[in-house]
């Protein structure tokens, strides 16, 4: 197990290093970094200051060293729109995105598993077919379009929920969260649902396939032959066998939720790090883009690492084969 952890940590570090190098190449080696990292309005003096700070007058390998050194110290440049360190700017927006992603995950699992079970247990019923058709739409339709339709239906036509913003927040441990106020919840619901739809479609498919497979197993027959109630057979014997693959896949998909939050946050004007990225792109605030990129890579790698380690801890077969 220890060997496995060490090897896995090594792989993660390698991925981050590779990505950092790619970012460095894109910013420093290909283009003119002053163009990219200095504000378009900067005067000669400012440009000289940036050139000195980034060591642009020195050879490329020294620049690379400086870039890595700064990155390791959390210095990925300064936003010229907000005039704040880019990393700090992103960290401020991180909790909102994280809350959105977590709520979406809860919705995806909470709605997706029951629907998937239903479709798996009654595959030929009208309801079963409808659930599957819905999940195909959830898969194939562009996320932003689904969001738009949610806004049109729930905000414009029905007027039940607000179309954008984050709403009222409360501080917990110094972090603003919105799921504890009614207003915040109302603002959170539509974007979270939007972000959840794709994963929900995925959960439905996985659960349905799992249920159909598990229902044919002898142990389900045996459980029924023992005289267990339908609720116990499905709720314990079937569900527990389905959950393992569903949880694994969802864990791996958590990272992509943070990426897809870019779209959802734009549709709902939700002040998370995804919206920040889009705003920064349109305002050419490049240090923020670079910082976002690096931080997302780190988040991705950490999530994948944690999921793999948890999986290895749960499933003895993985542990044995990898060791």
């Amino acid at each position: 197990m220890l060997v496995y952890i060490i090897r896995r940590l090594g792989q993660s570090a390698l991925v981050i290093a590779v990505m950092a190098t790619l970012v460095f190449v894109a910013v420093y080696a290909v283009g003119n970094p002053v163009d990219i990292l200095a504000s378009p309005q900067a005067d000669q003096q400012e440009i000289e200051a940036i050139t000195r700070r980034l060591g642009l007058d020195r050879p490329l390998y020294e620049q690379y060293g400086l870039f890595v050194w700064n990155a390791l110290h959390g210095d990925l440049g300064r936003s010229f729109v907000y005039n704040e360190p880019a990393v700090q700017l992103i960290l401020k927006r991180l909790p909102a995105t994280f809350e959105l992603a977590m709520t979406a995950l809860v919705i995806a699992v909470g709605v997706g598993i029951p629907l998937g079970l239903y479709a798996g247990l009654k595959p030929n019923s009208l309801g079963g077919h409808s659930v599957m058709a819905g999940s195909i739409l959830g898969f194939s339709l562009p996320n932003f379009w689904q969001g738009l339709m949610l806004v049109l239906l729930f905000s414009v036509v029905l007027g039940w929920l607000p179309a954008g913003g984050r709403g009222q927040t409360v501080e917990i441990l110094g972090l603003p969260v919105s799921f504890l106020t009614v207003d915040g919840l109302q603002h959170l619901l539509l974007p979270a649902l939007n972000l959840a739809l794709y994963k929900m479609a995925l959960v439905i498919r996985l659960t349905r396939a799992g249920a159909r497979e598990v229902m044919l197993q002898d142990y389900v027959r045996f459980a029924r032959a023992k005289g267990l109630s339908q609720a116990r057979v499905i709720g314990v014997h079937v569900l527990k066998n389905i959950l393992i693959p569903v949880v694994t896949v969802l864990g791996l998909e958590l990272g992509s939720m943070i990426a897809f939050a870019v779209v959802t946050e734009t549709v709902f004007a939700y002040p998370g790090m995804g919206k920040l990225l889009i705003d920064s792109i349109s305002r050419l605030d490049r240090p923020v883009i670079v910082a976002y990129l690096m931080m997302t890579v780190v988040i991705f790698v950490v999530i994948n690492l944690v999921v793999d380690l948890i999986y290895a801890a749960i499933d003895p077969r993985v542990r044995l084969s990898e060791a």
Partner: peptide, 8 residues
């Protein structure tokens, strides 16, 4: 091998 539920 299959009559007992593997995860319980």
């Amino acid at each position: 091998m299959t009559t007992l539920n593997p995860v319980l």
